[in-house]
Nucleic acid binder design. Structure first.
Length: 444
RNA sequence: GCGGUUAUAGUUCAGUGGCAGAACGCCGCUCUGUGGCAGCGGAUGUCCUGGGUUCGAACCCCAGUAGCCGCCCCA
């Protein structure tokens, strides 16, 4: 039992993933890799920490993530003349990917870059169900020079359609896609200004939280859930009225393409995202919220979020490289799968899969021969466990029945004759099989 | 950062001022090379930590720590 002051304990907000859960994690990741590769994505792995200024500039100084949730420290100066570098554990992965895009001049290839990543991210938030200080994201970024088609609404629709496919293949039930456009880099500030103007006279009528938001981040007032404020919020200016012609046309083409693919979505004019870099298309996939057994998440019903970031590369000092991406909260995805009864194709089948054989040597003197036999069978592609000859046979049977489909008995008679005793648990049938035929027989 | 709630065996939990408990799991025996069932026996504890009250604290009080739930925010 870990005690509070025991240093041999995972630190707050972090956790160990153990078998059999890790089997589900691997399964999820392998399905994601398989889907991504069908859509032409390649994997990128960026460092787990970066220069602090990358996130300050990319994600936005004013966001909660940067202003109060980052794990930041001063690295040791490499020389006396040098200033210590401020480093930060990545709170998200988009900024790092765009940094790599710029650093390696990927834009000069002229090609559209389709990249995916799977890895841990770090935010110093209060831990809660579906929210950890080290959490995993599965994400995708599509970006490139304008001439590569990176700005095309086709890309937005493709990414969204791919997500629908991925969630379906994972077996997530009841997902909803909510879609919005927050306009171009010039539309958005115009809208925020109009929102502030509209909020100023009515602010005092709003709840405390919304009064604060009206000051700090007016966009967030829009997705307030306070029932008393809904009427006032409804009456606020709508982002759709502030989109310029090209943004409006872009958004409409995304919708047309989704319709053509048969991907269902809901336009949510209040969907705003927290990160500064988002432009035009923004979206969120949700699952039924707390109380619903299909959720597994508490009030954290957002499974993934994303959007377009046409100005991010330039904000970081790079070339123009419009892009779109998303990040799936892998921890939340797993929680949802575990909560949904529909996960058996992933869960029970994976978790309850038994080994092909358990080799039970009789007596410690037979251990070496048992291990050699296991090696032979494993090289033939079978999954095998080896018992210890010191175990009583009864114990070997119990252990074997738990983990394997067959037990292979390796005693004095068997070693002398080369004819092994094999019992199949499902049928209770016991036979003698020559060692040369063993691998084939155990496959059945 | 704020609020609520919880912390006892490997696990899930009961116990509520007076000997530390159950179930499951684990080990052994019945049964020296044949499991699943059954019977019998056994081991396992910083009762989260530190302080206080008391003749006596797992239990009451205070403070910490951590988990969970929610707020904020986000994946």
């Amino acid at each position: 039992m870990p005690t509070p002051s025991n240093p041999l304990k995972a630190v707050r907000g972090t956790r160990d993933l153990l078998p059999p859960d890790t089997a589900l994690w691997n399964r999820v990741e392998s399905i994601a890799r398989s889907v991504f590769s069908r859509y032409g994505f390649g994997e990128i792995r960026t460092p787990i920490f970066e220069d602090t200024s990358l996130f300050a500039r990319g994600v936005g100084e004013e966001t909660d993530i940067v202003s109060k949730e980052m794990y930041t420290w001063e690295d040791r100066a490499r020389a006396q003349s040098e200033k210590a570098q401020s480093l930060t554990l990545r709170p998200e992965n988009t900024a790092g990917v765009v940094r790599a895009y710029i650093e390696h001049n990927l834009g000069d290839t002229g090609q559209l870059q389709k990249l995916f990543y799977i890895g841990p991210q770090f935010r110093r938030e209060r831990p809660q169900r579906g929210r950890y200080r080290q959490f995993w994201q599965i994400g995708v970024e599509v970006l490139g020079p304008v001439t590569s088609g990176s700005e095309s609404p086709l890309r937005d629709a493709e990414v969204l359609e791919m997500l629908a496919t991925l969630l379906d293949e994972l077996g997530i039930k009841g997902w909803r896609l909510e879609l919005n456009s927050v306009g171009s880099a010039t539309d958005r500030p115009r809208y925020v200004a109009a929102l502030r103007e509209a909020l100023a006279p009515i602010k005092h009528q709003l709840c405390e939280d919304n009064q604060r938001r009206a000051e700090t981040n007016p966009l967030r007032v829009l997705d307030s859930k306070d029932p008393n404020d809904q009427a006032l919020i409804e009456a606020l200016p709508r982002i759709a009225d502030f989109l310029d012609d090209s943004s409006r046309e872009h958004f409409s083409q995304v919708c047309v393409a989704l319709d053509a693919c048969g991907v269902p979505y809901t336009i949510n004019p209040r969907l705003v995202r927290g990160l500064d870099y988002y432009t035009r298309t923004t979206f969120e996939f949700t699952v039924p919220s707390s109380g619903d057994p299909a959720s597994g998440l508490g009030t954290q019903n957002a499974l993934l979020g994303g959007g377009r970031y046409d100005g991010l590369s330039e904000m970081l000092g790079g070339p123009r490289a419009p892009g779109i991406g998303f990040a799936i909260g892998e921890d939340r995805l797993i929680l949802t799968l575990q909560a949904q009864a529909g996960a058996p194709h992933l869960a029970s089948e994976m978790w309850e899969k038994k080994l092909d054989a358990y080799i039970a040597p009789l007596g410690s003197k037979r251990n070496a021969a048992a291990l050699a036999l296991a090696r032979e069978l494993r090289r033939a592609g079978l999954s095998v466990e080896v018992g210890d000859g010191a175990f009583r046979l009864k114990k070997s049977f119990e252990a074997a029945d738990r983990v394997a489909r067959h037990i292979v008995i390796l005693g004095e008679d068997e070693l002398a004759s080369g004819i092994l005793t094999v019992k199949t648990f499902a049928t209770g049938e016991q036979t003698k099989i020559a060692q040369a035929d063993l691998a084939q027989a155990l496959r059945a």
